[in-house]
Design a protein around this nucleic acid. Sequence first.
RNA 1: GCCCUCGUAGUUAAAUGGAUAUAACUGCGGACUUCUAAGCCGUUAUUCCAGGUUCGAUUCCUGGCGAGGGCACCA
Length: 583
Amino acid sequence: MKSYEVIWDAINLAVLDTLPPDTKFSLSKPKNLSFGDYSTNAALLIGNLLEENPMSIAEGLKKNFLENYLSNVARIEVVKPGFINFFLSDSVLQDVALDAFNNPYTFCGNVIVDSRTHIVEFSSPNIAKPFTIGHLRSTIIGNSIASILLHLGYKVVKDNHLGDWGTQFGKMIVAIKKWGDEEQISNSENPVKELVALYQKFHAESTAEMGVVDDTNPQLTEEDEPEKGTSPLLDEAREWFVKLEKGDLEARRIWKICVDLSMREFSKIYERLCVSFDTFWGESMFENKMDVVLQELKDKNLVRESKGALMVFFEDKTKLDPLMVLKKDGGTLYATRDLATDRYRKEFYGKNIVIINEVGKEQASYFKQIFKVEELLGYFEKGQRIHVKHGLYKFPDGKMSTRKGNVIWLADVLDEAVKGARALSGGNLGDSDIEKIGIGAIKFYDLYRDCEGDVLFSWENILNMEGDTGPYVQYTAVRINSLLEKARTQEMVPYEIVLGKSEQDIARIIEGFPVVIMKAANEYAPHHLASYLIDLARTYNSYYANTKIIQERNQAGLFVSQATANVLTLGLKLLGIEVPSKM
RNA sequence: GCCCUCGUAGUUAAAUGGAUAUAACUGCGGACUUCUAAGCCGUUAUUCCAGGUUCGAUUCCUGGCGAGGGCACCA
């Protein structure tokens, strides 16, 4: 952090009067080592702006930097079009490695740059629905984002916004009453699977009642709503949901059964994934907090009745579709509860918050609507509401869906991964280590890519443990630990160590850790961290694959090895991945 | 119909408007009586098409083509 900041400040100071404040120059780590540790394009931008030769401006800046003596920089170079490249001094690299060596858990931590409370809402599975691989992304990515923010010293609240309310429960109640056997379900080995089967049966039956379903979406206008088929089953389900909302005892009883059975299942999965939450503010918690929102919407003239329902219509220029907040039967919707949730969060935590929803990208336009409404209501200002979108798992035959029956249960995936890890282990590892490896592979597979892209589900990919994978990083850390264990007899005096070329190259990458962490935090993008870890591990392995560090009693090598292991372990931890004791 | 994403080696991915587009997998070819082969080294190959903005475009803008998603009582 220090080096980056020092150089950044120096540039800012030097260009203060020449560049307009909103101009964004860059200070980045070049891919090519020969371009230095940091490189800026400031001179190019100024040259462009003042219509002067960037090279001479760069030379001027360089002179300025030299005069003001950047203590951490050994050399400054001005190159071709007008780049200014900074080369860090050896002592800086040494200090960084020492920092990582001494502070395995706090390295680059507690650098608070944002004092607002960050509410990270993620995972949010639906009660009485399968916890599938589809929920995995939100769970893993959200957890990692929260960990990264926490490491930087942010105030963070991890919230699981359980889908425990909605018309779906009307459907569940009807299905259980018609076809289910409560006792048998409760005693079943996998109660959630029973519930899901009932839900699917409901969907099949009600669809049949409606006859052929027209899947094409007609143009949305207030005037011509398409006539859809009717279904007595659906009507019954809607009635039950209204009863549930009104507190009908029988409805509540069945609802509670569903919630309890599901939560038991979810807890097991969270435990395996090492994911925890601070709050479980499910949708049902806001069932009695929606009236205020609806009243506010009416008071501010934001809603209008249409076809018996209450809708928010947006200005044309926003290009947003209308949003329904109350059904014609008086039932509420997801949107109503979301608005109530955020309103309550604002009351509970105060105005100074950021709410991050880690939710699939198929809900992108929905969140745009919600954010807009919250802005119109005066709840939040720009930058306080963030939708971190993740891509979907895709199958050869299209998107996964509960209804299509194209479901892969997460527990099965985890089991398969652990099985794969066990096969590779050759029977030398304990169960807990094998579990860490299998789950690490799955998590890393998800976190290694930009989360917005879709992921093609394939067993081959997801269970891969070679190459750019979690086990690769784990393996590197474990190998270093083992090496250090064997070298323990040696006394190490890190302050007196002189780094060689290879150690410096590794230290150079360690020096980039804070920049990566900040980037991952700012963009809510853990994949920057994941690819960094691969880079660090690979560089380390390429230098120390076959070197006899112990025999050579290479103090510098051992020192950098420990620093590397610390950074890898910390980085994995921020991704929610544990390092096994043995591999 | 309207709106929103996304098109990078054979495959899966990376790259704040920067310098020679980076890795992995696969293929082919190597090294090593070692700290642990889930490892290491070498090698072939890439920005959908056409314009535009820029000193500089995978990145920004426009138009095609292709894939996916969303759009009224689901969440």
